[in-house]
């Protein structure tokens, strides 16, 4: 059974600061999460939540204080693990003396690729990220979006199994974001695991399968986006086609159910609960009375609403 792409258990990181390192700042407080292979996972959290620290611990850029972390079954931060990872840091800075091509040659060499391999790969890769015509151009002439694309190219150059992207669409225009979403889906289709850290919740909602929410170094939530955006106090709304008497029979024993005619033989049924079992039971009874189910809609909230809701609840508890 393949191990998780990212497995973090009770991870802690305390930064020491001040004279004689007497001031301690807890950046991660016992974080545990798992990212399965082949999924797109989003890490969310406000500024200072510990998202970048978590990524840096995973890559060995920052040493963990306690806990365990592994990437693709290898110890996080080990050289073997880093070989399997492509990383696009937030606010990365590629040395300005490079062109697009020479930057890829440099970073590819750091990843252990031969010059021949780099030459073979960089053309198609620049094409993929939309920089095909800019390979010979000094990067000091690149826009921020172009630099972000080049950063993504260097992360993909050595064909890693796991991509860790920190604010990947920062500075990228809407068209570029759309292209990046397509690219990420394509990579997912190839079996790559993608770990995204982003403030742009709409982007995350559009591409991620699962998310985790981090605040003040603690994990508040982890799960599929679909489950996160379902409102606990929402209603289920059915549109059915039936005779009225059949509908009444089906709903007689149900409490908290309202119905109204939509004209003709169509009715709207409003179930004042979002409980799955209740919804399933109601559907079963409607079908037993021969009622046709035209549509079913459940009340949802956006990822942003869910995110803010979770943060607010966490802060209330503190």
């Amino acid at each position: 059974m393949p191990t998780a792409a990212i497995d973090v258990q009770n991870l802690r990181k305390t930064y020491r600061d001040g004279l004689l390192s007497r001031r301690a700042v807890e950046a991660l407080r016992g974080v545990s999460l798992a990212v399965e292979r082949g999924e797109i996972f989003g890490l969310l959290g406000p500024n200072g939540a510990g998202k970048t620290t978590l990524i840096k611990v995973l890559l060995g850029i920052v040493r963990r204080t306690a806990g365990e972390a592994s990437l693709l079954g290898l110890p996080a931060g080990s050289r073997l693990a880093r070989k399997q990872v492509g990383y696009l840091p937030e606010n990365h800075r590629i040395p300005r003396h490079h062109t697009g091509n020479s930057a890829l040659m440099f970073f590819g060499s750091l990843s252990g690729l031969s010059r021949r391999e780099i030459r073979q790969r960089r053309g198609p890769l620049l094409e993929t990220v939309g920089l095909a015509r800019w390979g010979q151009t000094p990067i000091r002439k690149y826009s921020k979006g172009m630099l972000q694309r080049l950063g993504l190219a260097q992360a993909l150059l050595h064909d890693p199994q796991l991509l860790i992207l920190d604010e990947p669409t920062d500075g990228v225009d809407p068209v570029g974001r759309s292209e990046m979403r397509t690219l990420l889906q394509s990579l997912k289709a190839q079996g790559k695991t993608i770990f995204i850290n982003s403030h742009l919740l709409q982007e995350v909602e559009l591409v991620c399968d699962r998310v985790a929410i981090l605040d003040h170094g603690a994990l508040l939530h982890q799960g599929p986006i679909a489950a996160l955006t379902v409102r606990a106090d929402a209603q289920a709304r059915f549109t059915v086609a039936a005779r009225e008497d059949a509908l009444r029979r089906a709903l007689d024993d149900s409490s908290g159910v309202e119905s109204r005619s939509l004209g003709g033989d169509q009715f709207e049924v409003l179930l004042k609960t979002n409980d799955q079992a209740t919804i399933d039971g109601t559907i079963d009874r409607l079908r037993q009375q021969g009622v046709s189910l035209v549509s079913l809609s459940r009340g949802r909230q956006t990822l942003e609403e869910a995110f803010l809701d979770i943060l607010a609840r966490a802060r209330d508890q503190r």
Partner: peptide, 18 residues
């Protein structure tokens, strides 16, 4: 100093090098 500034160093240290 420029090499080990926050921008470039993250990129470098994420690579499989000592």
């Amino acid at each position: 100093p420029v090499t080990f500034e926050p921008g470039p160093v993250d990129l470098l240290l994420s690579k499989p090098i000592s």
